[in-house]
Design a protein around this nucleic acid. Structure first.
Length: 551
RNA sequence: GCGCCUGUAGCUCAGCUGGAUAGAGCGUCGGACUUCUAAUCCGAGGGUCGGAGGUUCGACUCCUCCCAGGCGCACCA
C-alpha cells in the first residue's frame, strides 16, 4: 500500500484534537493548497469545529497546533489565514518515502477502504437493436474506470450490462429484420417508418439466410418474429460485446430482461410494495405512491390492460441486484433517463432499503465535431458514427482518456479532428510520453550494461533539488487522489492528476540528466523517475489506458 | 408550464462534500534539439466565474429570481 500521507496526517490530527479535548469527526479532509507558502497539506478543521466549541477559529487552530504530535513526516505546522492549519512535510522524510512507494510497487495507491464490500456497476446497457454509438463509448469509459478505481480501493466490483431483450423494441427489430430478409429474397417491401433503418440489418438478413434459410417466413407470425427477434438480439449483443472487449471493457455479467420478466420477480415486488402500503388503484391502473418519497407525481406500476410497466421491471431488476448480495449499486444512465432517478430511489426506499444503496450517475451526451463543425447524425435515417468507427479513428487510449478528462455529467464536445490530427497536443500522449521517456532511460541503461540499482541501497537524500522535492510530493499525493476519485465517483480526477505529474516530469527531464558520472546521484534519480513511471502506469491503468514503453 | 444538467480565458475544460491572490491544455506571439525520445521545454499575453440579489468571518461553490443551451415531463421502453 505504501505511504499514504493524508492517512498519517489524519492520525496525528486526531491525537491533537483529543489533546485539545475535541472528539475528532469521522473523516478529516485534507486539501493541497494552491500556494506553496501555504504548505503541502492544509485542513480547515479548526474553522469547522470552532462553532461547536465556542471559540475563535484561530484560537482552536493554535491549540491544535500546540498539541500536534511530533512525527517524522512533518517539519512544521502553521496556523494561517482565518484558521487554517498548514502542514509542511519534512524534505528528508519525503525523499525516504519514495523508497516506500517503490517498495509498494503496484499496490501503491491501493487501499482496503472498500472492506471487500460487493459493489455492482451497471453501465452501457444499450438496446440490442443496433451497434454501439459514441455516447456508449463514453459510458463504457466512465463505468469501467470507476470499476477499476473502486477495485483499487478494496471493493469487490461486478460490472453488469442490462440487455433489454424484451418489449416493443425487440418486436420492431424482428419486423425490421423480416423485411430485410424479404428484400434479400427479391420481394419489393418497403421499410415502415418505425422500423430500424440501419444497414447492419441487411447484413444480419444475409447472415440469417445463409445459415437458416428462408423457412422462417412460412411460420406463424408470432413464432417467426420470436425466432428472428432472438436471432437479432443475440447477434447484435455479441457484436456489442466484441466492440467493448476491443475497447478494453469486459463485463462480469450480461443480465437478460427477458429472463427477469419470466421469473415473476416483478409480481413479488408489487406485492411487497402493496404490503407496505404504497400501492393504490385508480383509473383501472395500479399506482405507486412515489410522491411519498419526493417524486413529483405517482407512477403507474400495472397498466389498465393488465401489463406491468417498464418501471416495475426496473424495480424488480434493482431488487434482484440487491438480492444477489451487492451492498452498493451504481447505475450509469443517459440524460434521457434522468427523470427516472427519483422514482427508482423512491421505490427502493419504499421497499425499506437503506438510503444511499443506489447511486445513479448521469453520463451526459457527446456532440461529435470535426474541425469545429457538428457531425450530422440521425438515428432515424440510420446515419450515425459507431463506437467502433470512433475507436478506429482516434484510437482506444485517446478515446478513453478524452472521455475521462471531463466530468461525467458535463456535456462533451468531442472533436475528432483535434483528438486525431493533433496527436502531439493531446493530453493522453503528454502523459504517455512521460512513461515512454522514462522507459527509454532504462533502455539506455541496459544498452550500456549498467545495472538497475536495488532501491533499498540508494541514497535518496541526494534528491534535494526543488523540482525533485515537488515530484516526490506529487507522487505522495497519488493515494489521496485515488481515494477522492473513489469517494466522489469521479474518474476524471485521475486524468488531471496525471497531467499535473507529467507536467512536473517533463521540465525536470528537460533540465536535468538522470544518468551522469555521479553514480550515487544517478541511482537516486533513477529511483525518482522509476517512481514517476510506476505511478503514471498505475494511473493510466485506472483509466483503462496503456503505458507504452516507446512512442 | 414543471423538473434535471450545463454556463469559468478566443476554444475545450478543471476548480477536490464553503476556504487563502480563480487554474490547465489548445490557439496567438517570441525563444530552445552534436548530450537519457523536441509527442518535450522556456517566456509573454489573456477573466465583471451567464446576470442580479441574499446567506457568513469567507461564495466559482449554498439559497432566490432572471437569461441562454441541452435533456426530460406516457397506462413507451
Amino acid at each position: 500500500m505504501g505511504a499514504n500521507v493524508t492517512d498519517r496526517l489524519s492520525d496525528a490530527l486526531k491525537v491533537a484534537l483529543r489533546g485539545v479535548g475535541i472528539e475528532p469527526p469521522d473523516d478529516l479532509l485534507w486539501e493541497v493548497p494552491r500556494e506553496e507558502a501555504h504548505g503541502d497539506y492544509a485542513t480547515n478543521v479548526a474553522m469547522v469545529l470552532a462553532k461547536s466549541v465556542r471559540r475563535q477559529p484561530r484560537q482552536v487552530a493554535e491549540l491544535i497546533r500546540q498539541h500536534f504530535p511530533g512525527i517524522p513526516e512533518v517539519a512544521r505546522v502553521e496556523v494561517a489565514g482565518p484558521g487554517f492549519l498548514n502542514i509542511f512535510l519534512a524534505p528528508d522524510w519525503c525523499a525516504l518515502a519514495l523508497g516506500e512507494i517503490l517498495e509498494a510497487g503496484d499496490t501503491y495507491g491501493r487501499s482496503d477502504r472498500g472492506g471487500a464490500r460487493r459493489v455492482q456497476i451497471e453501465f452501457v446497457s444499450a438496446n440490442p437493436t443496433g451497434p454501439l454509438v459514441v455516447v456508449n463509448a463514453r459510458a463504457a469509459a466512465v463505468g469501467d474506470s470507476l470499476g477499476r478505481i473502486l477495485a483499487a480501493q478494496g471493493y469487490q466490483v461486478f460490472r453488469e450490462y442490462y440487455v433489454n431483450d424484451a418489449g416493443n423494441q425487440v418486436q420492431t427489430l424482428a419486423r425490421s429484420l423480416e423485411i430485410r430478409i424479404r428484400q434479400q429474397l427479391g420481394e419489393t417491401v418497403e421499410l415502415p417508418e418505425e422500423a430500424y433503418p440501419g444497414e447492419y440489418l441487411v447484413d444480419l438478413a444475409k447472415e440469417y439466410l445463409a445459415t437458416a434459410g428462408p423457412a422462417v417466413l412460412e411460420w406463424p407470425q408470432a413464432e417467426s418474429l420470436e425466432r428472428l427477434g432472438r436471432f437479432a438480439v443475440e447477434r447484435i449483443t455479441a457484436e456489442q460485446r466484441r466492440v467493448l472487449s476491443a475497447y478494453g471493457v469486459e463485463f462480469d455479467g450480461w443480465f437478460s430482461e427477458r429472463r427477469l420478466r419470466e421469473s415473476g420477480e416483478a409480481a413479488r415486488v408489487l406485492e411487497r410494495l402493496r404490503e407496505r402500503g404504497y400501492v393504490y388503484e385508480a383509473e383501472g391502473a395500479v399506482w405507486f405512491r412515489s410522491t411519498a418519497f419526493g417524486d413529483d407525481k405517482d407512477r403507474v406500476l400495472v397498466k389498465s390492460d393488465g401489463e406491468p410497466t417498464y418501471f416495475v421491471n426496473d424495480i424488480a431488476y434493482h431488487v434482484n441486484k440487491i438480492g444477489r448480495g451487492f451492498e452498493r449499486v451504481i447505475d450509469l444512465y443517459g440524460p434521457d433517463h434522468h427523470g427516472h432517478v427519483p422514482r427508482m430511489q423512491a421505490a427502493l426506499q419504499a421497499l425499506g432499503y437503506p438510503e444511499g444503496i443506489l447511486d445513479v450517475l448521469i453520463v451526459q451526451l457527446v456532440s461529435l465535431l470535426r474541425e469545429g463543425q457538428p457531425v450530422r447524425m440521425s438515428k432515424r435515417m440510420g446515419e450515425f458514427v459507431t463506437m467502433e468507427e470512433l475507436i478506429g479513428e482516434v484510437g482506444r487510449d485517446a478515446a478513453r482518456f478524452t472521455f475521462l478528462t471531463r466530468r461525467h455529467d458535463s456535456p462533451l464536445d468531442f472533436d475528432l479532428e483535434v483528438v486525431t490530427r493533433q496527436t502531439a497536443e493531446n493530453p493522453v500522449y503528454y502523459v504517455q510520453y512521460a512513461h515512454a521517456r522514462i522507459s527509454s532511460i532504462f533502455q539506455h541503461l541496459r544498452e550500456r550494461k549498467l545495472p538497475v540499482p536495488d532501491w533499498r541501497r540508494v541514497d535518496l537524500l541526494r534528491l534535494n533539488l526543488p523540482e525533485e522535492q515537488s515530484l516526490i510530493k506529487r507522487l505522495l499525493q497519488f493515494p489521496h487522489v485515488v481515494e477522492g476519485a473513489a469517494r466522489a465517483l469521479e474518474p476524471h480526477r485521475i486524468a488531471y492528476y496525471l497531467q499535473e505529474l507529467a507536467g512536473l516530469f517533463h521540465p525536470y527531464y528537460n533540465r536535468h540528466r538522470v544518468i551522469s558520472n555521479d553514480l550515487a546521484l544517478t541511482n537516486a534519480r533513477l529511483a525518482l523517475v522509476s517512481g514517476v513511471a510506476q505511478v503514471v502506469r498505475q494511473g493510466l491503468d485506472l483509466l483503462g489506458a496503456s503505458a507504452p514503453e516507446k512512442m
